[in-house]
């Protein structure tokens, strides 16, 4: 059994393997992960909206030992991750981190949010630093989901 604490280091090896297969293997996998995550989130996000997202990520912050702040506003939910335990473990790893390890997060989150009727601006910030930021809004034609790697320094 791979301990749940160490799943992400295995995940990191899965990403490397799928990347080596070429084609859409890795992108297809993100969609499978997104579908699997629906059991935890989709109904909650559809019925409770932004407040449901705060409840979900508040639970994740505790269970995964994250240093993060989730803030609920009238029109959006903002999550600021100051120390991501997932990338931290992928980096603290004798096998080395998959260079695009962070991409799996928007890879599963955005399809699920869009299915629930929301859009997401996801800033990975820097793929070698365990910080990121995402802002979630009710979907609208003027606000498509997007992913960026801004390189912003900590405030």
């Amino acid at each position: 059994m791979i301990p749940s604490d160490q799943f992400v280091r295995f995940y990191n090896e899965v990403f490397k393997f799928l990347e080596a297969q070429g084609g859409t293997a890795l992108a297809d996998y993100y969609r499978i992960v997104s579908g699997q995550q629906e059991m935890h989130c989709l109904e909650l996000f559809k019925t409770q909206g932004l407040a449901g997202m705060k409840a979900y990520w508040d639970r994740i912050a505790v269970e995964e030992n994250c240093d993060m702040q989730g803030t609920l506003y009238a029109d959006r939910y903002e999550l600021v991750m100051s120390r991501c335990p997932s990338l931290s473990k992928a980096l603290d790893n004798d096998a080395g981190a998959f260079p695009r390890y962070c991409d799996h997060c928007p890879g599963w989150i955005i399809p699920l949010l869009e299915k629930a009727g929301y859009s997401c601006e996801y800033d990975i910030i820097d793929r070698t630093v365990p910080r990121c930021r995402m802002v979630i809004y009710p979907a609208g034609p003027d606000r498509p989901s997007r992913v960026q790697v801004s390189g912003k320094k900590p405030e």
Binding site: S4, F7, F10, Y11, I32, M39, H40, I60, E63, E64
Partner: peptide, 21 residues
């Protein structure tokens, strides 16, 4: 590796999806 603190056992569900894929 010797993690401490809380456990996120839902990763076993993620493992199930990963090995199936």
């Amino acid at each position: 590796y010797r993690e401490a603190g809380e456990l996120h056992k839902d990763f076993h569900g993620s493992m199930n999806a990963a090995v199936e894929y």
